[in-house]
Design a protein around this nucleic acid. Structure first.
Lengths: 347, 347
DNA sequence: ATGAAAGCGCTAACAG
DNA sequence: CTGTTAGCGCTTTCAT
């Protein structure tokens, strides 16, 4: 039969020392005689000892684990809807970049993220329970929707958490975010630099702060370049709204020669409509997107796009959560990152 | 100051019963007076009790958690190489589909996977430690390379594990896999059905079992349709080898009118070369790929491809691991899934 | 059906 | 610098 796995006690006995000493050696606490240390190491080797984490967690009152939760807004999603949401979300390269960034902080610390999906109210409760049970010390949350109720829930329960993107309602939680204004400015200056004289924009929904900031940044940089009248069509971040917005813009201002779409999907829609109307991209009209998502690459032509440094942002989230969990940081803060422009064929 | 979180003891006191009773109620054990049960529930509510998992795990000797590990073969990857590997892997839709499938089994059980990446020897040791420390009860492993040493390590340590794809060397571990033979047959029958009279194939490396099986299935089904002489070019699963293989095929058999490439990347290469040589796809030469990966959609034209039911396979992995952890299953087994053909423009 | 009590394996005072 | 000891919060016989 398979014996019980060896415990500290077993190692202590094998080494002829006390449990405390073995514990000290295992946890690299100094104040241990090098000679004894050596003996203990050998005993560990000999017994094939592996510390029991549950026991350690019980006493240090920490799991040394964090949850990575992707959160939607579904009210009461059924299994079917959740399944669809899950594959869509996990299949999105954005998620992959977040995971990569988070892990690059966690790995050197021998920590590994627990993946959670919160698409229904029950799911959100599950996340809260998970943390309250001490299965993870805190949460890194990536919301797919600005009205996600999870952040407020977490803050209310005083659970350590860090958000990707500043929450719409004021929630006292630490977050990382992009300087959307700077992103808009990047697009504006690029268009200006390639000689556009009549730039326009298909913005995101104006009730979303990020949309407003991208727009403001775009306008400001254009004004700096002497362009003050900027045709605007409000979109909804969908392909259809990109097509529609572009059509609208073209109808009102046939002389448009540059467009900044607030995300890649709308930029793709704009490209499609432009070509359909016989305008060449970028020769007649240059198009700049936002996000540098997968469609930026597959779009015809490939999109010049404003990119978020997602990996670095995610890494910072993990760092912020870590210091929060160790009680090193107190008040919630926000860390803002600069976007970069990825130049491809569309502008 | 923030009080300690309530314990079973606190609830017991509030309800006027013993800890044992509260424990029974919490864990839904029968043999509890409905009246008392009600009282206990109220006390739980009142105190805001949440069970401490570390304590529970310590006593039941189980974490009720599984690790999902993506494993490569790097010898001693540095941080840089690992970073690249991480984003490439996590950004691949295949990984997203695996995560989705795994979670659909885990969620109803309030379990959540811990994500691990094993790209170096140290990483693999880390995975073994993680399990030995009882931080997870078993591992679901997805290898990116057939020579991955992790499965053997796990088997050697007698740790519960289930693999995606049968390991190349015989390792006594449970796995799920695709019926590659049936996949090849699917491609063959599709080509035959659309009227191809001179089908050929760009296979994968013939020292990889999956490659050999896809090829065998392709040939068998072709033979059943009366085609016995099948031009073959051995590729290496890369875009370049797809181009090369197709060029080779064309040189030797200018009358080829259908091609089965053993993965989408090579199929894309084949398409590219075909068009370059003035052949229309699919009119002159029909092309079928394998994997139904992202390139299948972005390829010009979009690829008809053989698809693995990845989500269902991943779900089954979780199920198999679960029964293994609960000691319900004994000897390693293999569960094989049927592929499906996704028809797009290329064939 | 309920309670009393013995640990699960580890850490952290506190002595020495 | 090392050992002794008292729990961490929960599950689980074993009595009752």
């Amino acid at each position: 039969m398979s014996r019980q796995p060896p415990t500290l006690e077993d190692v202590a006995r094998a080494a002829g020392v006390s449990r405390a000493t073995v514990s000290r050696v295992v946890n690299g606490v100094r104040n241990v005689d090098p000679a004894l240390q050596e003996i203990v190491f050998r005993a560990i080797e000999l017994t094939g000892y592996a510390p029991n984490r549950a026991a350690r967690s019980l006493v240090i009152r920490r799991a040394e684990t964090v949850a990575l939760v992707v959160s939607g807004v579904g009210g009461a999603a059924d299994d079917e809807a959740r399944e669809v949401f899950a594959t869509r979300v996990f299949t999105d390269p954005f998620f992959g970049r977040v995971v990569g960034g988070v892990m690059s902080f966690l790995r050197p610390r021998s920590m590994h993220p627990v993946l959670m999906l919160a698409e229904s109210d029950a799911d959100r409760q599950e996340v809260v329970s998970f943390l309250r049970q001490g299965r993870a010390d805190g949460a890194l949350v990536v919301s797919t929707h600005p009205d996600d109720p999870l952040p407020a829930l977490l803050a209310g329960a005083k659970l350590p958490a860090v958000l990707f993107a500043r929450p719409s309602r004021a929630v006292p939680l630490t977050y990382v975010d992009l300087d959307h204004r700077a992103g808009g400015a990047l697009a504006a200056r690029h268009l200006l630099a390639r000689g556009c004289r009549r730039p326009a924009t298909v913005s995101g929904p104006l009730d979303v702060r990020a949309s407003r900031e991208r727009l403001a940044g775009f306008r400001e940089a254009l004004a700096d370049g002497g362009v003050t009248d900027v045709p605007l069509a409000e979109g909804g971040f969908t392909l259809a709204s990109g097509i529609e917005g572009m059509a609208d813009l073209l109808a009102r201002h046939p002389d448009v020669d540059g467009v900044f779409a607030a995300n890649d999907l709308m930029a793709q829609g704009a490209c499609r409509l432009l070509r359909q109307r016989g305008r060449r991209v970028p020769d007649d009209v240059a198009v700049v997107g936002f996000d540098d998502s997968g469609v930026a690459v597959t779009c015809e032509p490939p999109l010049t796009s404003v990119r978020q440094p997602v990996e670095r942002m995610a890494e910072e989230m993990a760092r912020l959560l870590d210091s929060q969990v160790r009680g090193e940081s107190q008040a919630p803060t926000g860390v803002v990152f600069d976007p970069e422009l990825v130049v491809r064929a569309s502008a």
